[in-house]
Amino acid sequence: MSTDERNTTEGGSPAAAPASPKPYWIGIGLMVMGAVWLYAGFGLPQGARYAAVGPGLFVTVAGAGLLVLGAILVLQISRGETFEAQDAEDADGSTKMDKRAFLTALVAVALPIGTMGPLGMPFTATLSFVLVANAFGSRRWWLDLVYGLILACAAWFLFKQLGLQLGRFFPPLGV
């Protein structure tokens, strides 16, 4: 009934972990966020006229919580807390990060902020489709362009039918 056997059958990651990262920045980031929320909370009324608790209390609690948790995290990291990347269905947590693939996918996610309004959803979605496919190692971009365009147009018409406000098809041409 020992549990060690279960550990070996679970997942395929090798036992030798790479040097454990020391992500102090996460703890510090949480503390900064907590401070912002705390500051905003103090700027709001803590007590309303008849109720004992005003709109500020929960903001203050959330801010204080993040601040304390960030500090605890920093302390834990300094004491050698380990962080192992999660395994996903198609991802291996123990492999090194592929920076190019990550950045390509990130551009695909950031792209809509600028193009969704002026160039429309089908165009934006097609472009993002090609970028993500490329990040995952697809090298036939012209084929992805076709796939992406078909999917984006089909989705645009389908969801439009369902009553979603997706904007114009291709705003530069006014359609």
Binding site: S128, F129, V132, A135, F136, L164, L166
Partner: peptide, 14 residues
Amino acid sequence: RPQLYAGILVFAMI
């Protein structure tokens, strides 16, 4: 997989 994940992003965006 490349087209699958690309498709998921399209739906996420919509």
